[in-house]
Structures are given as structure tokens and as C-alpha cells.
Write a protein that binds this DNA or RNA. Sequence first.
DNA 1: ATTACTGCAAAGCATTTGCAGACTG
DNA 2: CAGTCTGCAAATGCTTTGCAGTAAT
Lengths: 139, 139
Amino acid sequence: MQTSNIKELLNSNGIKATWQRVEILKVLQSSNECLSASQIHQKLSAKNINIDLATVYRVLELFDKKGITQKSVINRKSFFELKKYEHCHYFVCIKCQQKTNIVDCKIDLIKEELRKRNFKVLSHNLEVYGICNKCCGGD
Amino acid sequence: MQTSNIKELLNSNGIKATWQRVEILKVLQSSNECLSASQIHQKLSAKNINIDLATVYRVLELFDKKGITQKSVINRKSFFELKKYEHCHYFVCIKCQQKTNIVDCKIDLIKEELRKRNFKVLSHNLEVYGICNKCCGGD
DNA sequence: ATTACTGCAAAGCATTTGCAGACTG
DNA sequence: CAGTCTGCAAATGCTTTGCAGTAAT
């Protein structure tokens, strides 16, 4: 995606398009997995783009609040990715650390249970740990 | 429960019964909710029992490894409680911070899905945030 | 005596914050 | 110009670790 389109995307979400935000969004768009703030910071550094880590955190928090990214907390660390149509969480392999999507986390069933008790669910986080199919076989 | 019984409980789990471990276990037994390391530390202090916070962390880690406690990570903090028969997680009210059990987290359905794909689930964590029944009504 | 356990202090790590200067409209 | 955003540095909060002294078998 072109920088100009990215700027429009930001503006349409009520976000002022500073070059830092544009670059961070580019990194998110070019990644097919969720990234932590420091991973994003590293990817930027690799492109010789220097943005302070604190700025990366602030921008990601903004993106999240505006709904253009979705955050997952895994092992106490935040990971961000562009918000997709499907809601998702991750299975994390304790051997190779690879993350695999869990699309259906059954939260609707839990929500329904809680709604009956008059609890209103606003957000949730699910982490599943184990051994992935690749690491299951050999090793 | 008497101290002697607590010692037996520890020994039967292969844990040497130091007085610090006995006291920490007493706190866990007398609580009807999950506690963080620092909450346990505070409760001990209130009884004029001084155990270093680092020791509390080490003991809780040991209890967890030996399976006498179960840990929940909520907002990046660890909370411990004695392991119960029912598996559980928490709904946390974002207004009053109160935690409420979610007994059935539907992990078996997720496990089944993953097993079909040859992933082995070893552990998981679920956090659900929202507004509890008390805070929903009035406020 | 050997091994395990604790207290103390310091370090670690992800994240947040205060502030002054830079940028943007 | 007024308000926002950024870089820098320092602080935060929870947790972990190194080490030397203590306790227990």
C-alpha cells in the first residue's frame, strides 16, 4: 500500500498522519503475524528508520484505541496486528515459540453464561500453550 | 487446619515444610479468593509474620510446580489459590476490580479442535473483563 | 558436612511518564 | 500561536536472580 493510502486510512480513523505513525502502520501491514512493540522497533531499525520505542508504544496504544489494531497479551507481553474480520487468539508452542491462530475461542458461550448473571463482557484474552504439530512429531 | 496437618500436606507433596512455607500455605487456605504474591506478603505482615517478598515468590512458584496451587495471570500479574477440583478462570470487573469465577471456560472444545490439527495443549489462561452485576445496575 | 532455603539487595524486563523541544494546522 | 507529537531519560511495577548466611538432615 502506498504512503498516501496509509495516510488516508489514518485520517479516516481520526488519527493525525505523522511519518512515525505511517511507518509503524507500514510495518504492521507488511507482517503476517502479530508483533510486539520492540519487534516493530527492530524492524524499523533494520530499515534505518529510527523511532523511539516510547513512541512506538504510544502509537500502538493509539491504534488500539482507535480500533485499527488488535492486541493480544502473551506471556505478559503485548502483541499487535491489524484488526481483522475474524476475532483471534493464539496457541503458543512452548518449544519453538511459534504462534498459531485460534479463531473460535468460544467466548460467545461464556458471554451468554455471564449475561444471564447480569455481567457485561467488554473484552477478553486467551492464551493457549502447548506443543505444536511440528514439534510434536520429531524431537 | 492445624500446622501439623499443613506440614503433612507439604511433605506428602514432596515439599520440605519450612515455617515460611507453612505460613504461606495457611494464608492461601484461609482465603476464599486468589491472591497475588504481594497480597500474601501483606497478609503475613498484618499478622506480624515477616517473610521476604522474594521468598513468597519462590515458594509460590514451588507450590505451583508441585501442583498444590493454581495460578491465574490477570492484567500481567500472577494470582494464586489452592488447586480446586474445578478448573477456573476469572471475570474481572473493570470498575470495582472484583473477580468472579468462570468455571467452564470451554477449553475442551478448543483442545479438541487443536488435537485434530496435532497440537498438544498443556496449559492456558483466560481473562474476561467487563462490568459486574453490581456495577451494572446502579453506579 | 552437604544440601536446600532464606533475606537482602540488585538486576531485569516490558511498559509508562515527565518534560522540553519540534512539528502541524 | 495553540495544541499535539516526539525523543530522551528516568521512573514504574512486578518478578527474578546472585550471593552470603542460616537451617535442616
